[in-house]
């Protein structure tokens, strides 16, 4: 479903955020990316839907080469849902409008279709009663669930999560992770950058460890947690697992 080949990202010609990353994600697979802050994990994720254009390398999603100049990027981005650390809901629109906007403009759905889809997704994330609220009236956890519903309403083939619980108060982390777990069980192809090792253990098919812009280790979560084959991976987990 996703294939990154030799992806590198350099900022200002000098800062190498990602170095020669290769990653393949199969359909229905859940891949969790972990690593120290500033290691380039978010950049790798953002390269998948070309929010960050790689300096070199190719990105293939669903058979389309995104790094090909002839590809219609706008169209393909709709197939890849993205959930951000800061939610990035549109503050001037209600929850309903947030979720219907792209359905109408990109998918060309009618008002009724978009509305029905919106309500279905809001049910799914457990807050159908908030459709007419503005984002600022919701808690962080609710806002993030709206953001997830907004992406799902586009019926994407892949969902990307960029530290979706890092900006949340502790008591709201679970409600967001529960939604993500359910999504994983339903067979959604997911790539998740997170510090929630519990989620990684429960949902990940594979764990990717990134350090200093390089993919150091890839493997089943249990194995990478308990028996990492690289010293850098071991040092990282020694610091965060307890």
């Amino acid at each position: 479903m996703i294939r990154l080949t030799g992806v590198s990202k350099t900022f200002d010609r000098t800062i190498h955020a990602v170095k020669d990353a290769d990653l393949e994600v199969a359909e229905g697979e859940v891949v969790v990316i972990v690593g120290p802050s500033g290691s380039g994990k978010s950049t790798v994720l953002r390269c998948i839907n070309l929010l960050e254009v790689p300096t070199t390398g190719t990105v293939v999603v669903d058979g389309y080469t995104l790094t090909d100049a002839a590809t219609d990027l706008d169209h393909l981005r709709a197939e890849v849902g993205m959930v951000f650390q800061q939610f990035n809901l549109f503050p001037h629109l209600t929850v309903l409008e947030n979720i219907t906007l792209a359905q109408r403009m990109v998918r060309g759905r009618s008002k009724e279709e978009a509305r029905a889809m919106t309500m279905r997704q809001l049910e799914r994330v457990g807050i159908p009663d908030k459709a007419d609220s503005f984002p600022r009236q919701l808690s962080g956890g609710q806002q993030q669930r709206v953001a997830i519903a907004r992406s799902l309403a586009m019926e994407p083939k892949v969902m990307l999560f960029d530290e979706p619980t890092s900006a949340l108060d502790p008591e709201m982390v679970k409600e967001v992770l529960d939604v993500m777990l359910e999504l994983a069980t339903e067979g959604m192809t997911m790539v998740v950058v997170t510090h929630e090792m519990g989620f990684a253990k429960a949902a990940a098919d594979r764990l990717v460890f990134i350090d200093e812009g390089e993919i150091v280790e890839v493997g089943p979560p249990e194995e990478v947690f308990t028996n990492p084959s690289h010293e850098r991976t071991r040092a990282f987990f020694d610091k965060i697992l307890y």
């Binding site: 839907n49 929010l51 706008d74 197939e79 951000f84 990035n88 792209a102 403009m105 586009m154």
Partner: peptide, 21 residues
Amino acid sequence: PPGQTEAGRSLGLTRRQTMRS
């Protein structure tokens, strides 16, 4: 904030649509 543009673009909106809406 640039996150607003990123959210719009990641939903498949074009540059122009993101700017306008």
